Simulated scan of single mutants.
Amino acid sequence: MGLPEASVSRELLPALADAPGHLLWRAAARVTVELGATLPPGVDIHAYAALLSLAGGTTRSQQAIAERIDVSRTTMVKVAAALTEQGLVERVRNPDDRRSYALTRTPHGAAAARRWRRHAEDLEDALTAGFSEAEREELRRLLLGVIEGELSPETPEPLLESLGFLITRAHARMHRAFAGALEPLRIEPRHFGVLTTVTALGPVAQAELGRQLGVSGASVVQMIDDLEARGLVERRRLETDRRTQVLHLLPEAGDVLAEAARIADETVAGRLGALDAEQARRLVLLLQRFVTAP
């Protein structure tokens, strides 16, 4: 699923609690929440990663940095502009292509990277409170087993040690694969979660749906609008409380959900193919703890 808006919900619906895709979605959402709660103003995790990739006086193009820290070109353009404005990097002629520019870290940038590392470590501690060192390392190894071959060989070591980094990257790849596979059904991964939840709970109020999925009211409204337009759900007002709208599945929803569930199983099998059955189960159990930790 695409990331929900920041939410404090730590509950998992039993129908989705063993689904690796849903767990990665919720885990990535928790990383986003902790980023906002832990990092002080002026500290950007992508900017920190970019500074790490420029360690040792290295000069690199924006695209090369983006590949090493696994962010989009759009994100990298914004990060580079912010770092340049703050005097943490400077633009220089790209040694590999004199027609373009590359970035090099300034002394102020090196100092910022050292300062920001403490905040990155605080983030990791907040994310894994209640985990033993052995459990943190096990989760890190399992996530690396899922995505390591898809990361740049020159990914900075602190990022490879970061659960926040690995979770968000594993989620992004799972979401991209699932979203592509769902296109013929004309739904998205987030809609799959809604249909699964309404099927499990029966007719449900929008507010309860948001609580079960850990998303905001605005996100719920958008998802239900999409599914109503697709002809899969409809809103009905309670006779006893006309202010409350309850969601009901329409006839086509069952067939769409069954096919989407099959696609979800295939996507997970493909994405977790490097893990054996026991490792996959351990990943699910550790992600459950990560999502539900108080």
Rank of each mutant, 00 (worst) to 15 (best):
V291T: 01
V204F: 13
P184K: 13
R93L: 11
G21P: 00
V31G: 00
T196H: 12
R169K: 08
T38S: 13
R141N: 11
T59L: 04
E135V: 05
A258Y: 12
L39S: 07
P153N: 03
E34T: 15
I69H: 00
L166D: 00
R30H: 08
Q86F: 04
A81T: 07
A129S: 05
S216I: 08
L250T: 10
P14Y: 15
G214L: 11
T197D: 10
R93C: 08
F165T: 02
R68T: 02
L16S: 04
L12K: 01
A269K: 14
V31K: 00
Q222V: 10
S61V: 12
R141K: 07
L144Y: 06
A129I: 09
T155C: 05
A37T: 13
D70W: 01
P251V: 14
G193F: 11
L103H: 02
A27R: 00
E150Q: 10
E183N: 06
G87C: 07
Q86V: 07
L16T: 03
L247M: 15
A200T: 10
T58Q: 11
R105F: 07
G214C: 11
G214R: 04
L257C: 11
L238Q: 14
L12D: 01
R243D: 14
G87D: 07
A269W: 09
L213A: 07
S7Q: 13
G2W: 15
T74G: 11
L13D: 03
D97Y: 10
R271E: 12
G109H: 00
A280D: 04
E154Q: 09
I167N: 00
A64Q: 11
D96V: 09
G210S: 11
E278T: 14
L88E: 01
Q62G: 08
V79P: 00
L88T: 01
V33C: 15
L283D: 02
P40A: 10
H171N: 11
A134M: 07
T197F: 11
V268S: 15
G180Y: 12
G193Q: 08
E259H: 12
H22E: 15
L142E: 01
A269M: 12
G57Q: 07
E148S: 06
T32C: 14
D70P: 02
E67D: 10
S7D: 12
L247V: 13
R105D: 07
R60P: 09
A264N: 14
R242S: 14
